[in-house]
């Protein structure tokens, strides 16, 4: 049975889809059979970030409604054989995402995959609830900023009370913190919450810290998950995240400002 991972946050625009794309590509590159599902019905972003938007014929809702089978809807990644994308539909009504329908699709996928990555929509409404309900693991994507941390904490409350695992008194969802859009310089200047501050409040296992990086926009422009940009800080941070998720003990990087050149160090005194 596949392990189901939800990428969630509460607050919008914090980097969930960027993370879902990176994680699924990273797992697949390590030989894990992986499918990534876009739960953001109505918006549909994941296929753009994955660069497969022109190959979308059928989507998640079509499969739930029995209008297409899984094989017709799944898009195989051109860069990595063991990665598949199940896109969201752009037009349909969000209520089409029924709990029974989602469960059936997850069960059908389960036998053929090692990991199912669920890209949650923002908010704490129906779509986000569906994305997290069946999860085994949750990666709570958080920005070092008051409203994002607060929403993450709310999401943790939902994970521990309203998920299937909670409702059926099973072993709780394993929760991880991923801090993104981290600006070490602003942290050093005391302008931004530090990773320790956020950890102190949320007390979660830290899966990674992804710096604020130009590489993320470049990657999304090109439709290439940023984890494939191995030169970039964000790509490397996501690579480390995947290794940690799989159990490797990798030290955290990009927590401190880069060492400046001699000149600016002198000026800064």
């Amino acid at each position: 049975m596949a392990r189901i991972i939800v990428i969630t946050s509460g607050k919008g625009g914090v980097g969930k889809t960027t993370t879902a794309a990176a994680l699924s590509m990273g797992l697949a590159q390590r030989g894990k059979r992986t499918v990534v599902i876009d739960f953001d019905v109505g918006l549909r972003n994941l296929d753009l970030i994955m660069g497969c938007e022109r190959r979308v014929v059928y989507d998640f809702i079509n499969v739930i409604n029995g209008e297409a089978n899984l094989n017709q809807a799944l898009i195989r990644d051109k860069r990595c054989d063991s990665l598949y994308v199940l896109p969201a539909s752009q037009t349909r009504d969000k209520d089409a995402l029924t709990r029974e329908g989602v469960e059936r699709v997850l069960n059908d996928l389960g036998d053929n995959y090692d990991f199912i990555v669920c890209d949650s929509p923002a908010g704490i409404e129906h779509g986000a609830y569906m994305a997290m309900y069946f999860a085994d693991d949750a990666i709570v994507v958080t920005n070092p900023e008051v409203s994002s941390v607060r929403d993450s904490d709310r999401m943790l409350g939902i994970l521990s009370s309203r998920s299937k695992r909670a409702e059926e008194s099973m072993e709780p969802i394993r929760e991880y913190l991923l801090l993104t859009r981290y600006d070490p310089m602003r942290v050093a200047n005391g302008e931004m919450l530090s990773v320790d501050d956020v950890q102190e409040i949320l007390s979660l296992k830290l899966l990674g810290v992804v710096p604020e990086s130009k590489a993320v926009l470049n990657a999304s422009n090109a439709g290439i998950p940023v984890i494939l940009d191995r030169e970039s800080d964000a790509g490397q941070a996501y690579g480390d995240m995947v290794s940690r998720y799989l159990g490797d003990d990798v030290p955290h990087r990009f927590l401190h400002p880069e060492k400046k050149g001699l000149l600016s160090r002198i000026f800064k005194g």
Binding site: R150, E191, E200
Partner: peptide, 20 residues
């Protein structure tokens, strides 16, 4: 603006305690 982060942290601690 230095010290902004500590203000943010303090506010968060109160907010989150309330929410919980």
């Amino acid at each position: 603006t230095a010290g902004n982060a500590s203000v943010a942290k303090e506010r968060l601690q109160i907010l989150v305690a309330h929410d919980r």
